[in-house]
Amino acid sequence: MREVAEDYVEVVLDLVQRIPPGRATTYGVLAEAARERTGKGSARTVGTVMAQYGGGVPWWRVVTASGAAAERVAGRAIELLRSEGVAMTRHDPPRVDLTEAGWEPWEDGSQM
């Protein structure tokens, strides 16, 4: 895996920490928010940050644009999301219903 700048890692982890229980967001939304603060990054870079450093934050609340959990952790992520009452679709495997449970960093009114 590639190296990611420490400041970017900190921003992404801070954003993930702010996702409330019962909600989820996408790699792309996090990338957009991180770009507002750092001027750099992409959804793929957010995925790299989560894979390398995400163990100490609620990583299961970060999903793909389709609402699917990351493939390598999907079973555990779905279990944790369901335990928090996150709205899920009827897909197989299930996905987060982002229209119901989607979270965006700017919706809580706090400064980015």
Rank of each mutant, 00 (worst) to 15 (best):
E104Q: 13
V9W: 09
P93F: 07
R18T: 03
P21F: 02
V9R: 14
G28E: 04
T45C: 04
S83E: 08
R18W: 10
V62R: 12
T99I: 09
V49D: 00
G67D: 04
R18N: 07
Q52K: 15
A31Y: 08
G22H: 05
E32T: 14
L81N: 02
P93I: 04
R90Q: 13
G39T: 02
S83F: 01
E107C: 04
M112R: 15
Q52M: 11
W60T: 00
Y53F: 15
T89D: 03
E107T: 15
V73S: 14
A70C: 05
D14S: 15
G55P: 07
V63N: 04
M1D: 01
G85T: 05
L15K: 12
R37N: 06
V16A: 01
S83P: 03
G41A: 01
P93W: 02
P94Q: 06
M50N: 04
P20Q: 07
Q17L: 10
L15C: 02
M50Y: 03
K40L: 09
E71H: 13
V63Q: 03
H91D: 12
L15E: 02
T25E: 06
A5R: 15
G39N: 08
G22F: 07
Q17M: 10
V73I: 11
G22L: 03
R44F: 12
D14V: 01
V57I: 02
A87F: 00
W103D: 00
V16R: 13
G41L: 07
R18A: 08
H91T: 12
T45P: 00
P58C: 01
P94H: 08
E6T: 12
T64G: 11
M1T: 13
G28K: 13
W106R: 15
V96K: 11
L81A: 05
R76W: 08
V29M: 11
V12Q: 03
K40R: 15
T25V: 01
W106K: 15
